[in-house]
């Protein structure tokens, strides 16, 4: 949230106003929702790429107790594909919303 409220949300709102003119209240609500979601996407799917993140440590801890010895680095490496995919999927969501706004403005 340290980045979203002062940085990302104003950028998104500014860009939307520049491209599509004045925004309705519902549009701003949805923009805020997407801005909040961005942080979760990045945080959740990116954090385990770091070898010493809480998630990675928990994974090796639990697996060790269950009798599987794995290295933190292997877990971090295994987290890379989904991190990349999460970026792509979120980008698709944002582009889709962009298109929706354009359509709405054309109809009006």
């Amino acid at each position: 949230m340290q980045f979203i409220r002062p940085l990302i949300l104003p950028m998104a709102e500014g860009s939307a106003k520049n491209n599509y003119g004045e925004l309705e209240e519902q549009d701003i609500e949805e923009l805020k929702g997407l801005a909040g979601a961005t942080e979760n996407y990045g945080n959740f799917y990116g954090q385990n790429v770091f070898v010493a993140s809480g998630g990675v440590l928990l994974i090796i801890g639990v697996l060790k107790e269950l009798g599987f010895n794995v290295e933190a680095l292997a877990v971090a490496k295994a987290s890379i594909p989904i991190a990349v995919i999460a970026v792509i999927v979120s980008a698709v969501q944002f582009l889709y919303y962009d298109k929706k706004l354009i359509r709405k403005k054309k109809m009006a």
């Binding site: 990675v56 639990v62 794995v70 292997a74 877990v75 989904i82």
Partner: peptide, 8 residues
């Protein structure tokens, strides 16, 4: 592979 399956 336990590392891959658990990470996912």
């Amino acid at each position: 592979d336990p590392a891959v399956a658990a990470a996912l």
